[in-house]
Design a protein around this nucleic acid. Structure first.
Lengths: 101, 101
DNA sequence: TATATTAAGTTACATAAAGTAAGCAAACAT
DNA sequence: ATGTTTGCTTACTTTATGTAACTTAATATA
């Protein structure tokens, strides 16, 4: 791939947010924890992709996963501070969409 | 595909911005017009994709294309008001990346 | 005259990512 | 023994992206 002088941190941020569903998943978690199935039913995403994205987000420290050993098992996803810091970004996208789309 | 109650405007905004390179192209144009080759050399994107993305952005009214009939031809790309309105969004991503990545 | 140059793409082809649907594990209830 | 529920995973198909070569138009150069 080409090499450019693009800021590596901006580049990485764009890699994350410019990946399908990522920003919408963060958006779903802004108001608090949600379970796997809740996110899945709120978005036109498949379980396969949702699972993949949540793993990426967890690995990046944007989301935390909590398992409750109930029957059947319950798993909740929350934003970390790092993830919650994206509130203005996703909020900004929402505002822009309301004004221009 | 699944049907959800997700706001169609937010959904469309995410479709655009959550597509690889789109936000970075807007970011490149924030400070003013750029030529095709300038954008291409500022980003690790290929001409094929850049061409495709610029067409989409033009179609959405986010970018305007201006042809100067010089030899060889010169083509400039600018943000429209709609595109420039994304300044805070891409700026927000940049700030977040500086603080958290 | 033939060849080269330059910007701004386009085309053809290979690989990677996303969509779809079916299957699985655990721990019960029937 | 069979069914139910949640949270995934697997196998397979389709779409998106990456790579590199090619095109067009209008000159300039050998």
């Amino acid at each position: 791939m080409k090499e450019t002088l693009l800021c590596p941190r901006l580049s990485k941020a764009m890699d994350l947010l410019g990946k399908r569903w990522t920003a919408l998943i963060v958006y779903q978690l802004i108001d608090g924890a949600k379970r796997f199935n809740e996110i899945e039913s709120s978005l036109p995403i498949s379980g396969r992709l949702l699972s993949e994205r949540l793993k990426e987000l967890e690995k990046e420290g944007i989301v935390v996963r909590t398992v409750f050993s109930e029957v059947p098992v319950r798993v909740e996803y929350n934003l970390t501070d790092k993830g919650y810091a994206l509130k203005d970004v996703v909020g900004g996208i929402e505002s822009w969409s309301k004004e221009w789309l």
